[in-house]
Amino acid sequence: MTLKDVIRKVFLVEIVKGMALTFSRLFTRPVTRRYPKEKRPAEPGFRGLHALVRNPATGDAKCVGCGLCAAVCPSRCINVYTSEGPEHQKVVDGYEIEVLRCVFCALCVEACPYGAIALTPHYEYADYSREALFMTKERLLDNWDRYMGEEGLRYFDSFWNPKEAHFKPPRGQAMFKGRIIGGFSG
């Protein structure tokens, strides 16, 4: 033990240093929050409660029912039910997510070619029953309105980089029924 160490021990230098930090904090704002009263805003890309993106143009979900989310889901918590509509179009009858089984990997969001499913910043959804955490299509759309809305679309575009653009055909190309403009230019 050198003389230096002895002096440090005798005059409690470490403790004084520590207490100085504590003392300095007496004059700064606290970093902890009084949680239920004060809420912490989520960071961009936070994976909270699920929502189905509402298409402002149609008022219905953007989802076309391709089922890629269900295919990629590692915990198999997504069920998509589709059927043929009156004009032979594909209609999404049901979209179910069992939130309790979800592992919030967001692979569904990544897989979706239309940016039709989102994980909202909302995280306060603890409940007492399983039913309350079984999301149907209506509830998922409702989640979107409540926790994302118009703001969400902007966020979505900038953050998730949807693959829809890759599927967008040039003008006049045979593509989705009912949305074709112009004919074969030959």
Binding site: H88, P169, P170, R171, G172, Q173, A174, K177, I180, G182, G183, F184, S185, G186
Partner: peptide
């Protein structure tokens, strides 16, 4: 290929089989 694709309406004339020749 930037030009348009061929178009051919999907045929629902048949009760069982649907043809999408595009």
């Amino acid at each position: 290929f930037a030009e348009g694709k061929r178009r051919h309406p999907e045929s629902f004339d048949d009760p069982i089989i649907v043809r999408n020749m595009e």
